[in-house]
Each structure stands twice: as C-alpha cells, then as structure tokens.
Amino acid sequence: MEGFIHSTESFGTVDGPGIRFVIFFQGCPMRCLYCHNPDTWKIGTGTKRTVESLLAEYDSVKEFMKNGGITCTGGEPLVQIDFVTELFEKAKEKGIHTCLDSSGITFTPDSTEKFERLCKCTDLVMLDIKHIDREEHKKLTGHYNDNILAFAKFLSEYGVPIWIRHVVVPGITDKEEYLFRLGEFISQLKTLKALDVLPYHTMGKVKYEQLGIDYPLGDTPPLDKEDAVKARDVIMRGLKAALKKRK
C-alpha cells in the first residue's frame, strides 16, 4: 500500500509526548480560515510512500526519539485511513508509540468498522476541535462539527486516550460562551488526557503569498499567550461546572 505524503519531520516536540517522528499527510477536506498548511490541502498529490519506507526512515532516527514515537498529521491523515491503519499496525508490531493528530472530519457514526480497526493500534489521538458552535464551525472550516464531536465520543467509548487541541482566534473562538461550552462538552470524554489551548498566529501567511492565494483572516492579530491561558481557564470552568452538575 502507498500513501500520499507531504513531508516528514525527524524531531517533532509539539506533536505528542516525547520527541517524535512526524508524518505530514497530503490532502484535507477542511478549509480552516487560519490553516497554516494550505500546501497540504489537495488530495491525491504529494510523494507516494510505502509503510515500509516510512518505518525505515523512522528506524534511521529512532535513537533520538526519547519517550516518543510516530505521529501522523497533515493535512488530514484520516483521508487516507487505510494507509494510516496499516502504518500503525506495523509500528505497533515494532513497539512504537502511535499518535494520530486529526480533526476527525471524515468520521461517520454509521460506518465505524475502519475506525475500530484503527483504534486498536492507536495509542493517542490529538483531536482538534476548531469550534464548539455548529454554525460558527461551518463558517470557520466549511463544515459542520457533528462528525467531529461524534468522533470524540466514539474515541472515549472505545477507550482511546484523547488530547484535545483548540486554537483561540480573536473575534472567532475567543468568546467566553463558546469556551465554556467547549469545556462542558469535553467533560463527557472519559479518556481525556490533556487540553492544549493554542494562541492563533500568523506564521502561515507567507505560504499563502507563495501559493498566490489570499489569506482569509487578513489583518487579524496574533493572540497573546496570556490570553490563551485565560481562555483555557474558561474552558476548565465549563468542564468543572458540567462535572459538578452530574454528581
């Protein structure tokens, strides 16, 4: 089996626990307004790689992967779920920790067989929840968030550890109501292991210029790290309030 790969990174430190070998998959159905990898959007392009070639590349640097493993990101790796599953199955045979960084957009509750197989060989899912509000999510990404939230619940029920990621964008996701609701939602996830609240940045702007496309958020300023910390506090208040109600 071959997959379409955008690129690889040998010493990832922000893509899961430890130092990781990061595989950027080509292709994504979403069009997030703040996406910093627009060069990974197009499906069916990129470099064709086999599972064996990627694992061989991992083996060449594995001595440096302290407490790490392999992370599949993108783009959206679940566009190529069969390839990711084969990669993770072979990785687990070699004792490698496997992490999936995904938006969950390709998940459908009425067709879970492939996802169940993937879950069996996945040690951690870093799930990006772009926006908790259904309509606002559509404005931000071009898609509703129904399947994404269903994927989160599916992972929880299946027992897969979840690491939630949320980008706080000025004027879009930084409203207290939305942050509180996000906290209420993730309080339902029995396998929640971590919450990353990330400040919006503009480092991807240069890629849009290079590709000759307009940057959707124009002059939206980056978010201060202090404001991201405050946003996380609101999310945690929502989580704790929801847990208290259920007691």
Rank of each mutant, 00 (worst) to 15 (best):
G218E: 12
I235V: 15
V84Y: 04
K175F: 12
H6Y: 12
F4V: 03
W41P: 02
V168Q: 14
T47V: 14
P29H: 01
H36I: 14
Y200M: 11
C121T: 14
I162E: 03
A152E: 08
H166L: 06
H131S: 01
D196A: 14
A150M: 06
K114I: 01
R31H: 06
R117M: 00
K225C: 00
G183D: 00
A152Q: 06
V206I: 15
M30C: 00
H6A: 10
T106C: 11
Y215R: 08
R20I: 05
K114C: 06
G69P: 15
K48Q: 14
G46W: 08
P38F: 06
L127W: 03
V229M: 12
L189D: 01
T202H: 09
C99S: 06
T71M: 06
D214P: 00
R31M: 03
V14H: 13
I148A: 09
H143M: 13
L189S: 05
K120P: 04
V14T: 09
E86W: 01
N145M: 10
K114V: 13
E57F: 11
I81F: 07
I23Y: 07
M203E: 12
I5V: 15
L127E: 03
G74Q: 08
L87P: 13
L211D: 01
H6K: 10
G68I: 00
I186D: 03
A56N: 13
H166W: 01
P109T: 10
F185L: 13
E52W: 08
K225Q: 09
L78F: 08
Y208I: 12
D59Y: 02
L124F: 11
D227G: 05
A231E: 11
K205I: 06
F88G: 10
T122G: 10
V51D: 03
L33Q: 10
K247F: 15
D233H: 13
R237S: 11
T141W: 05
S102K: 06
G44T: 07
T98Y: 02
L239K: 15
R237V: 01
V234G: 07
D39L: 00
I172R: 11
P222Q: 04
G238H: 08
T191R: 10
D214Y: 09
T112I: 14
L211R: 04
I132R: 02
V160G: 04
T108S: 10
V22E: 12
S53K: 06
L87M: 09
G218S: 05
H137D: 00
G75H: 13
C72H: 01
Y215E: 10
D123C: 03
D128N: 08
Y200L: 06
K225H: 05
S102R: 04
I105V: 15
I96E: 11
K66Q: 07
D59N: 09
F154Y: 14
D224R: 14
H131I: 01
L78H: 03
T47N: 11
G46S: 10
E57Y: 07
W41E: 13
T173E: 01
E86R: 14
T202F: 00
T173R: 05
T13W: 08
L55C: 09
L124C: 10
I19S: 07
